[in-house]
Design a protein around this nucleic acid. Structure first.
Length: 551
DNA sequence: CGTACAGGTCTA
DNA sequence: TATCTAGACCTGTACG
């Protein structure tokens, strides 16, 4: 397949350097930046992979011009994967501007306007970096897996930009009605809404604290203790355990205050424009390979405000999520036949009960969460011996990951994403990590070592789960494109992705085909990661008018 | 007066 | 007897 490396030449020209999959260069052309979108649109007719320093620096402008690309190679994201992967000979990846690629950050909501001469990306040579990456991949152990990871990561970069471009349909009028019903009318100048004022008066009376500000944890804690309540913190969960006439009003205040602060009128003003909530998704933003987000708290949109996410007239949302993704991924990556058998049922935890591994569904859930998060005590910890007997390969895999982390070793996901090197173990001379703290006791060191073991234990499962989800997303993106005609936002398109859940915005008459596509993409993701090994990934899928109506 | 951190709450 | 993974982001408060 042809590859075209895009290189900025000053503010108003772009160099196109053609090469093949080995990086051997063919010809070079220079075009004015103003016609780049037309050039890309024309070349998209044939198979081509666009190679660029960073998708967030190139793709938004193409999408604005109505151009969608099929494939890219994001040097920033690929660099980050290759730099950490234990499959890679790091010597092949090292060049004089490696530190610059290490530091390169995506363009996000916080700094949308980088001027050409201020952008650190302009100091980097994409052609040289591309060559190093191809050489590193070609020589890698497990080249096939690592190649799949890079393909999925690069496809995710395109999805992320397309989701920000399209935006999640959001009805400000529905959201405002919800706020007014719960909080009262929008008060002027950011003062407290009527409902909060009323609750505040009640709380101050109940705790005999006329100046109490419940938004100040310190003064709230002192007021509670002065009323004789035996509390050490002011979390809602703690307060729910208490018997006191002021508690219900306080809990209600905290809940509504949180709504106001996180998703109130200010949020609407900041993040909703022209009927769309536009946040920035950051592929690879979490070390495990999960996405992070930036702007509007897209990864924690409360269920409370989801009624305001409403599909356009004549359109629907297809909302799909995977049931128990991570235990299923663990069954597949450890090739644990017994756990895969439990995963054959729609409810994996019920499957574990049916197999006699645990007594109840609650035990199954607590035990699996404990196995993946590293609980050794309490409810979850008690399940571990039984699970280990019944599922030795699955439990053995996470246990080994934990032991490796405790020894300070790097662990990796199925496709080869590597865990960070623990502090104090970094080998780069310019990044010595934290020097050993002379004041740290043996107990502290032991606690840190076990905490790092819990992190690496979770890393292999959460990270491989993220790889499954990326493959699902990438395959779904291609299927959705083939279902319609026109630009991205005229066809069925992804508008939201959160670890194991997707939301597709689709013309109503295509909803049935989108549902089928979501299922087929999930089956394909399982095949890509686990081949013929029989582990199922059943989906909960809903066709709805509002996001709140799913699930 | 701006930055850093603590505490809290939402997400999977 | 037992709160254990990964994030974003708000306010209040301490600090330089």
């Amino acid at each position: 397949m042809d590859r075209v490396v895009l290189v900025r030449r000053g503010g108003d020209a772009v160099e196109l350097r053609e090469c093949d999959d080995d990086g051997a260069e063919d010809r070079v052309t220079v075009v004015p930046a103003a016609v780049l979108a037309d050039v890309v649109r024309e070349r998209e007719g044939a198979a081509v992979r666009w190679v660029w320093d960073d998708t967030t620096r190139w793709y938004p402008a193409l999408l604005e011009a109505g151009v969608r690309v099929e494939r890219c190679w994001d040097l920033r994201l690929s660099h980050a994967v290759l730099r950490r992967s234990p499959f890679v000979d790091q010597g092949l990846l090292t060049g004089e501007d490696t530190a610059g690629w290490d530091r390169l950050q995506p363009v996000t909501a916080a700094d949308p306007a980088l001027f050409p001469l201020d952008d650190p990306a302009d100091l980097l040579d994409p052609v040289a970096e591309h060559g190093r990456q191809l050489a590193a991949l070609a020589a890698a152990a497990e080249r096939g897996r690592l190649g799949l990871l890079l393909a999925a990561e690069n496809s995710g970069a395109l999805v992320a930009a397309e989701m920000t471009f399209a935006g999640l349909p959001w009805r400000a009028d529905v959201h405002e009605r919800l706020l007014t019903e719960l909080l009262g009318p929008r008060p002027p100048g950011g003062s407290r809404p009527a409902t909060l004022e009323r609750l505040l008066t009640e709380i101050r009376g109940a705790f005999a604290a006329p100046d109490l500000n419940p938004d100040s944890p310190g003064s709230l804690l002192r007021a509670l203790q002065a009323s004789g309540l035996p509390v050490g913190d002011t979390r809602s969960w703690t307060l729910e355990q208490l018997e006191h006439p002021g508690i219900p009003a306080l809990l209600e205040y905290k809940k509504l205050s949180r709504l106001l602060q996180a998703n109130g009128w200010n949020w609407l003003d900041s993040w909703v424009r022209e009927g769309r909530f536009r946040s920035y998704f950051l592929p690879g933003g979490v070390v495990t390979g999960r996405w992070a987000s930036n702007g509007g708290g897209a990864l924690s949109v409360p269920a409370q405000v989801r009624p305001a996410a409403v599909a356009d007239d004549g359109w629907r949302f297809v909302v799909a999520d995977v049931a128990q993704l991570e235990p299923r991924v663990l069954a597949g990556m450890s090739r644990d036949e017994a756990m895969a058998e439990a995963a054959r049922s729609t409810d994996l935890y019920a499957g574990m009960v049916a197999a006699g591994a645990v007594a109840t569904r609650a035990d199954a859930k607590a035990g699996m969460l404990g196995a993946m998060y590293g609980a050794t005590r309490g409810e979850s910890g008690r399940m571990m011996p039984g699970l280990t007997r019944r599922y030795p390969r699955a439990i053995g895999l996470v246990e080994e990951a934990a032991r490796a982390g405790e020894r300070g070793e790097v662990v990796h996901t199925l496709l080869g994403r590597g865990s960070p090197v623990p502090r104090g173990r970094a080998e780069q001379p310019d990044e010595p990590g934290e020097p050993p703290d002379a004041g740290e006791s043996a107990e502290d060191r032991d606690r840190h070592r076990r905490a790092w073991g819990r992190f690496t234990r979770n890393f292999v499962v959460q990270g491989t789960g993220a790889e499954w989800a990326l493959c699902w997303l990438a395959d779904l993106r291609n299927r959705l494109w083939r279902l319609g005609a026109g630009t991205v936002e005229e066809r069925p398109h992804l508008v939201f992705f959160l670890h194991d859940e997707v939301v597709v915005h689709t013309p109503e008459h295509l909803a049935g085909e989108v549902v089928a596509a979501v299922h087929r993409a999930a089956a394909e993701a399982g095949r890509l990661l686990f081949g013929a090994f029989p582990v199922d990934f059943p989906l909960d899928v809903a066709v709805v008018g509002s996001w709140a109506d799913a699930g």
